[in-house]
Design a protein around this nucleic acid. Structure first.
Length: 375
RNA sequence: GGGAAGAUACCGAAGCGGUCAAACGGGGCAGACUGUAAAUCUGUUGGCUCAGCCUUCGUAGGUUCGAAUCCUGCUCUUCCCA
């Protein structure tokens, strides 16, 4: 994997670059639709590629391991063949599930013992087997196995957790470096910077991950309950010290505003369930602001859901989409998800253009005001 | 024509003398959702000059300190027998 930094904005850390993988190139900054269980919920890969114009999608180790099971993915020839997506894939390691599963998991030095949310059966994730599983899933970018602490964790817990994540990281790289890709294309392992909302821990975490010559670096443990201000501050702390010539991935973020502010602070890659989950639940993100499609005011509004939208679904009327969502029709969730993803991809693509043309900061400031509006 | 059961808020449906402006479900309205245990969850749903008051359980009367709950007439609905 190679990363070429093409342009850095004036008065901003925003960057435009190109990430090259064996499954094609990714122009950064980029948003990556989340396809947890091997599917971006409700959207065909054809539309993800041709309509939404996504360049990379996510999968999740935890979910795919539990169902359908890694043996099934291996027999399919890897996730790309299984779900018919021939562009890059990134898999999350399951670290976030270890965090969000709460009381049905137990951490130890060895790893995380947890119960399946599907059938209650017991399983163990270790840095080693998580690397092996991600080798088998066959993602182009695989993530280190980490512990994600909640936003309100105290300093002592955050510090102890970070130290565990760092010991796990060494084991991740050791296992990763002693194994080979299974399907003939290369894979890259991204370490994850933890440290919660504590500047010194974040700085130490960045220094630690730089010991490994990784193809890219992720920032985790944000957007998990801390304030937006804290999230931005920690992002800045991290990007200040991360290598310039490698992509930075801010995990799980965020709202359209969060993404622009993240780009402004030097982030190149984002993923978030928000466009799909909130879309399914009736919320639309547009360049003019946020719409709750369930609201009565759209009942007889026959204008397109997004005049400026880039997706073909944007030509459906607000009244029709409201009807579908109120009626709990599958198509409503699909249209809303597809619109939101296309909007997110438009947003990062436009940010990239503005970085290259030198207009990023003023454009960003203008957009942020509009994006926050409730229509 | 005879008999039986029933009429409760937007709809369905509990309640069968006081703790009932009335359970519960649906529908309506609004909110939440950030490396997806989420096509999910939460709030609200008679009116008002809102820690109180007013109107409401088919309708008109009655019994009672007190009635959605008991009694009588009427209206309507469903079922059974002719």
């Amino acid at each position: 994997m190679q990363f070429e930094l093409q342009k850095t904005a004036d008065n901003s850390r925003a960057r435009a670059g190109v990430l090259t993988t064996d499954h094609g190139t990714i122009e950064t900054p980029i948003f990556m639709p989340v396809g947890t269980a091997g599917s971006v919920k409700g959207i065909h890969t054809r539309d993800i590629k041709e309509d939404i114009k996504a360049e990379i999608i996510l999968g999740n180790t935890y979910h795919l391991y539990l169902r359908p099971g890694i043996d099934v993915i291996e027999k399919a020839g890897g996730l790309h063949k299984f779900n018919r997506w021939d562009k890059p894939i990134l898999t999350d390691s399951g670290g976030f599930q270890v965090f969000s599963l709460g009381d049905i998991r137990k951490l130890s030095e060895e790893g995380a013992r947890f119960q399946s949310h599907i059938d209650g059966s017991y399983h163990m994730f270790t840095p080693e087997n998580v690397m092996d599983i991600q080798r088998t899933i066959g993602a182009d970018i695989i993530m280190a196995f980490d512990e994600c602490t909640p936003g309100d964790a105290d300093y002592d817990y955050a510090k102890r957790s970070l130290e565990l994540t760092q010991r796990w990281l060494e084991r991740c790289f050791k296992q990763f470096n002693s194994t080979e890709p299974k399907y003939g294309y290369s894979q890259s392992l991204f370490p994850i910077v933890q440290g919660n909302t504590f500047t010194d821990l974040r700085k130490a975490a960045v220094a630690n991950v730089k010991n490994f010559d990784a193809d890219g670096y992720a920032i985790g443990g944000l957007s998990v309950g801390e304030t937006e201000q804290e999230m931005y501050e920690m992002t800045e702390v991290c990007t200040a010290d991360l290598p310039e010539n490698k992509p930075r991935y801010l995990m799980g973020v965020g709202t359209p505003v969060n993404i622009l502010e993240g780009i402004h602070r030097g982030i190149d890659m984002f993923d978030c369930v928000m466009p799909t989950r909130n879309g399914r639940n009736g919320m639309l993100f547009t360049s003019e602001g946020i719409l709750n499609m369930r609201n009565k005011k759209w009942e007889n509004d026959h204008s397109p859901i997004d005049e400026n939208g880039t997706s073909f679904v944007d030509q459906y009327s607000k009244a029709y989409l409201r009807h579908l969502i109120i009626s709990n029709e599958m198509l409503g969730a699909q249209i809303a998800s597809q619109h939101n993803l296309a909007f997110y991809l438009w947003l990062v693509k436009t940010a990239r253009e503005k970085i290259q043309s030198g207009e990023f900061v003023s454009w960003k400031n203008e957009m942020v005001l509009k994006l926050k509006q409730r229509l």
